[in-house]
Simulated assay, not measured.
Amino acid sequence: MTKTIAFYGSSLLSAYWNGAATYYRGIIRALARRGYQTTFYEPDVWDRQKNRDIDPPDWARVVVYDGTVEALRKVAAEAARYDIVVKASGVGFEDDLILSEVMTAARPGALRIFWDVDAPHTLGEIRQAPDHALRRWLPDLDMVLTYGGGDPVVEQYRAFGARACVPVYNALDPSTHHPVAPEPRFACDLAFLGNRLPDRDERVAEFFTRAAGLLPDQRFILGGNGWHDVAMPANVQKLGHVPTADHNALNCSPRMVLNVARDSMAVNGFSPATRVFEAAGAGACLVTDAWEGIELFLQPDEEVLVARDGQDVAEAVRTVSPDRARAIGQAALARVLAHHTYDQRAEQADALFQAHAARQGAAA
């Protein structure tokens, strides 16, 4: 089996308004170590190219195309040259057209994949639109891969006509996310890093803002885009966009780090965000809002603290000592290094690709 991949996604080079960047980088870099040659096609939209946080890597070829339909069609036609063609969710520019163009261009026998980095959102769109482009394409695609969701997502995709749906979860790349020396500028009792999104506002207000208001003598840090005009208690410092180069320090410097899932991901469960593994990989003491399936990734009370509401978050910040916080963080680091790295996810993806190739060979 030859191993060339055309991957059409949001951005590999920029994490700006692009929460999937860490996932793309981890998976594609790990696949490269298994002999896959990936070309990543990303549109020049949303100011991402002005906010690159990595240079073009040696483990993937990156093609940046203009945000025009003409440029899109030109790069989509290149899908015909590859063994595996991937259309990711949430490209942010003409998603339906990209899906149609690249899957139509894929050569006979190529493995055609829809790789969903926000399955709850995508499935919600499909439910509301019977003529949704992805819904029409699902029966013709070879598989759907998701970076979260578990059985509920798999069952919904199968009900909509997907031949196969397999979660390939977020994970840790220890070469990029790891413990570093703490930095005074990020020192605080609790930090949360996440862009502001409509279906996360209420949960952030409960789990972060309310907790900060309950502990006026403790220091809180809020990083990410979109929070500049949101009222916060006086003990909250807003950082704005935090480049990925600073993520390790931001995770290593606070006493505790918070994860807040978006509404849809919390409801579906089994959807750990990239920040969960970034924080665990840095040895941070992670506090997460409650969602089904957390124990699949980290053991509550031993490797992660689970909060039902802002009161629980405040209680953890108030009572967990620095020594216990360090012990929880070290246990989390050991767990993710042993069971949740992108090398392990790439091994899973490789097995899926190889099994498909074997089935095709048997059929031929």
Results as ranks from 00 to 15, higher is better:
79 A>C: 12
109 G>V: 09
303 E>S: 10
282 A>D: 07
285 C>T: 03
111 L>E: 13
42 E>N: 06
220 F>C: 08
194 G>D: 08
212 A>L: 06
239 L>G: 04
205 A>I: 07
4 T>F: 06
213 G>K: 02
27 I>Y: 06
83 D>L: 04
147 Y>G: 06
177 H>L: 11
82 Y>C: 03
62 V>H: 12
21 A>L: 03
328 I>S: 12
37 Q>E: 15
260 V>C: 11
108 P>D: 15
126 I>K: 00
208 F>T: 05
18 N>L: 02
356 H>F: 02
359 R>E: 14
192 F>N: 02
340 H>K: 09
189 D>T: 10
72 L>E: 13
255 R>E: 13
39 T>A: 08
297 F>R: 09
153 V>D: 12
149 G>I: 15
344 Q>V: 08
121 H>I: 12
83 D>A: 10
51 N>E: 04
361 G>K: 07
103 M>I: 08
135 R>S: 00
151 D>Y: 03
199 D>Q: 07
129 A>P: 00
61 R>D: 15
348 Q>W: 09
164 A>N: 07
238 K>T: 01
272 P>W: 03
291 W>C: 13
338 A>D: 14
132 H>S: 00
79 A>L: 10
289 D>S: 10
315 E>P: 00
80 A>V: 15
104 T>Y: 02
98 I>H: 15
55 D>S: 13
105 A>W: 04
108 P>S: 14
218 Q>C: 14
190 L>Y: 11
339 H>R: 14
360 Q>N: 10
302 E>P: 10
300 P>E: 13
162 A>K: 02
293 G>D: 13
98 I>K: 03
35 G>P: 11
286 L>K: 01
210 R>T: 13
33 R>T: 14
250 L>G: 07
77 A>F: 07
80 A>P: 02
151 D>A: 14
45 V>F: 04
114 F>I: 04
132 H>V: 01
123 L>F: 00
140 D>L: 05
148 G>D: 09
196 R>K: 09
231 A>D: 14
56 P>C: 13
100 S>T: 14
281 G>P: 02
316 A>V: 12
91 V>C: 11
321 S>A: 10
9 G>Q: 12
33 R>C: 09
60 A>P: 10
185 R>L: 14
88 A>Q: 15
328 I>Q: 13
261 A>S: 15
113 I>P: 01
49 Q>G: 03
294 I>A: 11
158 R>Y: 02
74 K>T: 14
160 F>Q: 01
106 A>W: 10
49 Q>F: 05
272 P>G: 05
208 F>M: 08
23 Y>W: 12
32 A>E: 15
